[in-house]
Write a protein that binds this DNA or RNA. Structure first.
Length: 639
RNA sequence: GCCACCAUAGCUCAGCUGGUAGAGCGACUGAUUUGUAAUCAGUUGGUCGCGGGUUCAAUUCCUGCUGGUGGCUCCA
């Protein structure tokens, strides 16, 4: 009896017998899909192609091109990898093996260390499994049946999962390999044509560092060879724009053993770029009604008691130093200082809000394994500010902040952002009631600006909830920079007040915020975003004047002097090298403009302009060139 | 901190199963006077991350430490 009603994307409706599978339907279709479909979606649920459809509905075949298709493809790939590992290491036990953004992994307890040298063997076994083109067969079991199967196979982690699941599990069988899995999976192993194991890492069972550590094998797989090649090529490209590598090549910064891990030296060129960023930042902040403050690097221990840092943040703080028999601590945050500036005199409701900004350098103990170039360091400068306002001003301030932040980031070419609202964590100060008010304020602000956001439960800071803005760089990676945190608690702990219109004392609300985040991380992100080719307004050297022979040296220096007069950062390359060599060097050091000066240019009193990446731009008068540079710097043109 | 891996000249890297090290680029010197991504020649450069052990002999094997890489946990 035909009782499965399928609605096709083109609107056609067709009835099928009970037991019909995606593959059956696929066979009736011609074209690309027939070869490329990896799963089928009925309404909102994704099913295996080989599985009898449990019910009818709107049908859509999924290919590798879709997110869901990739997940199915990579999930099955993880399964194949696990099977291969099992063949190489028969005692291996398996935990989780999900697809991720790019590829898949499987957490494995192999009984001994799997190392990179085992990759070849595992990949060969995977190739055998793929070649055998065995079907993935689904079965649904009772909890007891499943536990028995996995107990027999000594799959302790799987048994634990089943017990935690508490509902009848499904399993997938491929050859003699059985995995606990919700699915869906590819019809057979043969789909996984091109794959590669990528890396190996440690990962705690269930993500808890108290649990034993498993080995996580990462891999990637594609239906087409070109896709695998492109993926590997992209890895290479990402490597080329790695800020650690570019930082060295372009002489921007260094981190040295003698000083200590996570402590950054800004070299002249890097420091110059930082200077331009700070200059811009300060200008924008003055325009937005901020005032600047400054605070010391250390303070008495008791200050950090008052603020709650010693109770909630001490694992990130350095040990006290003794000064005149008193303990002092290096600051991990700037907020207590700003609170005390507020407290230094009586404040009136008329003067709120105060917006106090500081490029404040803080030090935090980060565990050695988390340090990473400029992205994660132990000493860094936050572009910090604290806003003290009345309750009736809060909403407006939050809205302003979101706009201010996105505007600032846009100037650097970051248009693509992800926004998160992080709520109360397990360890927190203050009352749940205050937390709710603060969270609500942030949520309202977000709603008002209309930006799309996600909730990040339990990810707030100890003193308040926060909005985090993550920016996407030019190759699509996401970086956390801006953070906006509403805090009802610190004002209470420091007992700060203002005098209201009613002549009574009132408690102000405090907003903590860093927009670029830290200058170190932001610089690292910028280096990778621009691949080291900083836009004109940031480039430490904007122009290299290149005389062709000694005969043009004098003229070249004259032009250079004119450029310097016009506040253009220019240098002359008057070494005894060929033009090609000098151009190559200017290109590799990513100088935005080159001016080639030969006899022709001297005679016509022009300059031959060459643009980084784009080559010869023809000749120009020096006046026109200077004007163009000025215009681009003024408008902060990115290209 | 945990798991795996790595550490050789300023940089990128060679150096098979132990017999105290090489290349390219860079830097320096000289020649060359050059028209849009590498002119030629010469010179310089290393306690083979640091300490201990095995050995007649250790850059190579073992071990401890330091630092780094990819992850996990944590985070600006």
């Amino acid at each position: 009896m035909p009782d499965i009603k399928i609605i096709f994307p083109d609107g056609n409706v067709k009835q099928y017998e009970h037991g019909v599978t995606g593959l059956d339907i696929l066979h009736e279709i011609n074209g690309r899909l027939k070869k490329e479909a990896v799963a089928v979606k009925i309404d909102e649920a994704v099913y295996d192609l080989q599985r009898a459809l449990p019910h009818g509905g709107a049908l859509r075949f999924l290919t590798f091109d879709s997110r869901e298709g990739k997940d199915v493809f990579w999930h099955s790939s993880a399964h194949v990898m696990a099977h291969a590992v099992k063949q190489v290491f028969p005692d291996a036990k398996f935990a989780f093996g999900p697809p991720v953004d790019e590829g898949f992994y499987y957490d494995i307890d192999a009984g001994h260390s799997i190392s990179l040298e085992d990759f070849d063997k595992i990949e060969q076994k995977m190739a055998d499994i793929v070649k055998a083109d065995r079907p993935f067969e689904r079965a649904e079991l009772s909890v007891d049946e499943a536990i028995e199967i996995f107990n027999q196979r000594k799959e302790d982690y799987k048994v634990e999962q089943i017990e935690r699941l508490g509902e009848p599990p499904s399993i997938y069988k491929e050859g003699d390999f059985i995995d606990l899995c919700r699915g869906p999976h590819l019809p057979s192993t043969g789909y996984i044509k091109y794959f590669k194991l990528l890396s190996i890492a440690g990962a705690y069972w269930l993500g808890d560092e108290k649990n034993p550590m498993l080995q996580r094998l990462y891999g990637i797989a594609f239906p087409k060879k070109s896709q695998l090649d492109e993926f590997l090529h992209r890895l290479e490209e990402a490597k080329k724009r790695d800020h650690r590598r570019l930082g060295k090549e372009l002489d921007l910064f260094s981190i040295q053993d003698e000083i200590g891990p996570g402590l950054v030296l800004w070299h002249p060129k890097g420091a110059f770029i930082r200077h331009k960023i700070e200059e811009f930042w300060k200008q924008r902040h003055l325009e937005a009604g901020y005032e600047f403050v400054n605070s010391p690097h250390i303070a008495r221990k008791n200050l950090w008691n008052t603020s709650g840092h010693l109770d909630f943040f001490s694992e990130n703080m350095y040990s006290p130093m003794e000064v005149d028999e008193q303990d002092y601590l290096v600051k991990p945050m700037n907020c207590p200082f700003h609170l005390l500036i507020f407290k230094s005199k009586t404040r009136s409701y008329r003067d709120l809000p105060y917006r106090w900004a500081e490029l404040g350098t803080v030090y935090r103990y980060e565990r050695s394994g988390v340090l990473h170039g400029l992205m994660r360091v132990r000493g860094f400068t936050q572009d910090d500010a604290h806003i003290f306002c009345r309750p009736d001003q809060l909403n407006d301030e939050v809205v302003k902040l979101i706009d201010f932040s996105t505007g600032l980031l846009k100037a650097f070419g970051f248009d693509d952002i992800d926004v998160y609202l992080s709520t109360r964590p397990e360890k927190y100060v203050g009352t749940p009631d205050n937390w709710d008010r603060a969270t609500e304020a942030l949520r309202k602000g977000l709603e008002k600006t209309g930006v799309a956001y996600e909730i990040d439960p339990g990810e707030g800071v100890f003193y308040g909830p926060k909005i985090d803005i993550k920016i996407r760089d030019s190759i699509g990676r996401s970086w956390q920079c801006s953070t906006i945190q509403v805090d009802f608690n610190e004002p209470e702990r420091f007992d700060i007040t203002y005098i209201g219109a009613d002549g009574e004392k009132h408690r102000p609300i405090m907003v903590h915020r860093a927009l670029l985040g830290s200058l170190e991380r932001f610089f690292g992100v910028l280096i990778e975003h621009y691949a080291g080719a900083f836009p004109l307004w940031l480039a430490p050297v904007q122009v290299v004047v290149i005389p062709i022979t000694d005969l043009q040296h004098e003229h070249a220096h004259k032009i250079n002097a004119e450029l310097l007069q016009a506040h253009i950062r220019s240098e002359v390359d008057d070494r005894s090298e060929k033009v090609g060599y000098k151009i190559r060097e200017a290109e590799t050091t990513k100088v935005p403009y080159m001016l080639i000066i030969g006899q022709k240019e001297i005679e016509s009193n022009t300059v031959a302009v060459r643009k980084r990446h784009d080559g010869d731009q023809g000749s120009s008068t020096i006046q026109a060139f200077v004007k163009m540079i000025h215009d681009k710097v003024m408008s902060k043109t990115l290209s």
